[in-house]
Design a protein around this nucleic acid. Structure first.
Lengths: 197, 197
DNA sequence: CTAATCTTGTGAAGTATTTCACAAGACGCG
DNA sequence: CGCGTCTTGTGAAATACTTCACAAGATTAG
């Protein structure tokens, strides 16, 4: 079995969103054509994407909305909950910590870290900001799945190395630097200014 | 001339960041190999990306750092300043309004809008939150280049239509919905939960 | 000036992704 | 049941993107 293309994953995630809308509206089935129109793609593309994982549509009818939604959740790894820690309690970190979209998608924020003593101990939306010094010790028993890196660029590389050493296997990087880490750490970069270009 | 691939633009933006670092360090030239190593790609890829716009390297030497940086800024449209309005003064809107990365890249936030009377009139970082009711009138004379849509999903489509009607030609959409707009409005979607999947 | 060494620019080859096009299954209706 | 209509699943074709490989320009050292 070949690797799933990044572009395919993005589209699957989009399809899932449309399926959830359809589910809420009470539709029982949906065609590749409908999914395509909402997602600004083609029906052939939708079918190709889905057929990669097997065939769960009915000819002449379309796809069963609840069945396809369940299948996509499984493919995207959303049938289980992922625990997330946010490192950096600045502007971006605070927006992310309170972003409802994560919870809705099965990601639960279990901790926020910062190095600024003025911020450590303050409470946000039920979460107490922890001292970054305790990152390694906490990670050893809480075993978070993903770290969101939202520090200033200057310290991002150093903090990323600590995250890697603490045994957290994936980093979502909001800092505007390219991280250099061991290949077994999954790094995904997000650059908001880049989106505007 | 063919359209520039999305993946190419992303890399060009990355190269520019490395060039700015090199500029700060005082390097006069840089090779495709060096750019490739930092950007986790190959030197052939770097050269192909750049050769698309002409040939401005020197064989045996590499590329002139300031010259290439200037050329990339021009290609990416960063030689001029773009004015941005943020619509939606919630968590994401406020993080974006204060995000320094935009300014550094030539995007200046000229206004923030919200529909909540409790927020309208309050001041953020030198910007007064305006009532969304004045969007059309303001846009007519300020002519912003880009609107950042950071409203809740339920109202995003309606607000996007107003933005389009107000004559703003590009939207960066942070709401978790797929906008349906006229084809001449450039829409770019950002979905933070998606990045984790 | 010549030789050795770098590094670009670019066809050609190799992969990957998207679109086309159509056979065949599924349903509804008379 | 037979017919018309809808919609999937999928090879094949088309397109797009990446990597290879090498000729040729540029520099440095002797």
């Amino acid at each position: 079995m070949k690797r799933i293309a990044d572009s395919t994953v993005r589209r699957l995630s989009l399809y899932l969103r449309f399926l959830e809308e359809a589910e809420a509206r009470g539709s029982a089935t949906i065609s590749s054509e409908e999914l395509a129109k909402k997602g600004a793609t083609t029906s052939a593309q939708v079918r190709k994407d889905l057929s990669f994982f097997g065939s769960f549509g009915k000819r002449g009818l379309g796809y069963s909305v609840p069945e396809l939604a369940a299948r996509l959740r499984q493919i995207l790894g959303l049938e289980r909950s992922w625990s997330v820690v946010i490192v950096g309690a600045g502007k971006i970190g605070s927006a992310l910590a309170q972003y409802r979209g994560f919870r809705q998608r099965g990601f639960s924020v279990i901790a926020v870290y910062d190095s600024d003593p003025a911020k450590v101990g303050s409470e946000w939306d039920g979460l107490v900001v922890r001292d970054i010094a305790t990152l390694e010790a906490d990670a050893a028993h809480e075993r978070p799945d993903i770290a969101v890196l939202a520090t200033p660029g200057e310290v991002a590389q150093g903090v990323a190395e600590r995250i890697a050493k603490a045994g957290i296997p994936a980093i979502l990087n909001f800092a505007p630097v390219q991280l250099q880490l061991r290949a077994d750490i999954a790094v995904k970069n997000v650059n908001m200014a880049l989106e505007l270009e």
